[in-house]
Simulated scan of single mutants.
Amino acid sequence: MLKGIDPILSPDLLHALRSMGHGHEIAIVDANYPCDEDAHVIRLDGVLGTRILDAVLSVMPLELGDSQATCRMIVDGNPETELPIFGEFLEIVSKHAGPTSAMSAITPVEFKERAKSGFAIILSGDGRLYGNILLKKGVVPPVS
């Protein structure tokens, strides 16, 4: 047991987050996401993607000043389509990274390519469609 660490951050997930370097990407994906052939999949069955995002961002900094530090999929070819989960994602990102945070919309093909080449994919138990978010790790500034 550890103090101050969200209990859904499993040993495998903590290892991945700690092993990531500046600029590495990690994806949190919904239960329908096809990732059975991807190299590093961390399963958190039964856990909502929003809950995982909140836990991950409690320990992982996002890349500052990068318009694609957080990305979600474009729905049905229309980047303007907003699903409720996107607002939930943005609220959690803003809580951890500040109110000026934004989330870029990228094509499903680009999302899948970047997720597959990223550091890890966290497979949630979330059944909400398009409940997928890509995160780019930032740096922890030195303590003054």
Results as ranks from 00 to 15, higher is better:
1 M>V: 11
1 M>C: 14
3 K>N: 12
4 G>E: 09
5 I>E: 13
6 D>A: 00
9 L>E: 03
9 L>Q: 00
9 L>T: 03
13 L>W: 00
14 L>K: 01
15 H>G: 09
15 H>P: 11
16 A>V: 02
17 L>W: 00
17 L>D: 04
17 L>I: 02
18 R>F: 03
19 S>Q: 04
20 M>L: 06
23 G>T: 06
25 E>F: 08
25 E>R: 05
26 I>Y: 08
27 A>S: 05
27 A>Q: 01
27 A>D: 03
28 I>L: 06
28 I>K: 05
29 V>Q: 07
32 N>S: 10
32 N>F: 13
33 Y>I: 05
34 P>I: 06
34 P>V: 14
36 D>L: 13
39 A>I: 14
43 R>W: 12
43 R>D: 11
43 R>N: 15
44 L>C: 02
46 G>R: 12
46 G>H: 12
46 G>Q: 11
46 G>M: 03
46 G>K: 05
47 V>G: 03
47 V>K: 08
48 L>G: 02
50 T>E: 00
50 T>M: 03
51 R>S: 01
53 L>E: 02
53 L>G: 00
54 D>Q: 01
57 L>T: 02
58 S>G: 11
59 V>H: 00
61 P>E: 15
62 L>K: 05
65 G>S: 13
65 G>Y: 14
65 G>D: 09
69 A>D: 07
70 T>K: 04
73 M>E: 13
74 I>H: 06
74 I>A: 04
75 V>N: 13
75 V>L: 09
75 V>P: 03
76 D>F: 15
76 D>L: 14
78 N>G: 15
79 P>W: 10
79 P>I: 11
79 P>C: 14
82 E>A: 10
84 P>Y: 11
86 F>D: 01
88 E>S: 00
89 F>E: 02
89 F>D: 05
92 I>S: 10
93 V>F: 05
93 V>S: 03
94 S>D: 15
96 H>E: 09
98 G>K: 09
100 T>I: 11
100 T>V: 10
101 S>T: 11
102 A>E: 13
103 M>F: 13
104 S>T: 07
106 I>N: 11
107 T>Q: 04
107 T>P: 07
107 T>M: 06
108 P>Y: 05
109 V>I: 08
114 R>L: 02
115 A>N: 04
117 S>K: 14
119 F>L: 08
120 A>S: 06
120 A>N: 05
121 I>Q: 02
122 I>C: 10
123 L>R: 12
124 S>D: 03
125 G>N: 03
126 D>F: 01
128 R>T: 05
128 R>N: 09
129 L>R: 14
130 Y>N: 11
130 Y>A: 15
132 N>I: 05
133 I>E: 00
133 I>W: 03
133 I>G: 00
133 I>T: 02
133 I>Y: 01
134 L>Y: 02
137 K>P: 11
138 G>E: 03
138 G>I: 10
139 V>C: 12
139 V>Q: 10
140 V>A: 15
141 P>H: 11
142 P>F: 07
143 V>G: 12
144 S>M: 14
144 S>I: 11
144 S>G: 15
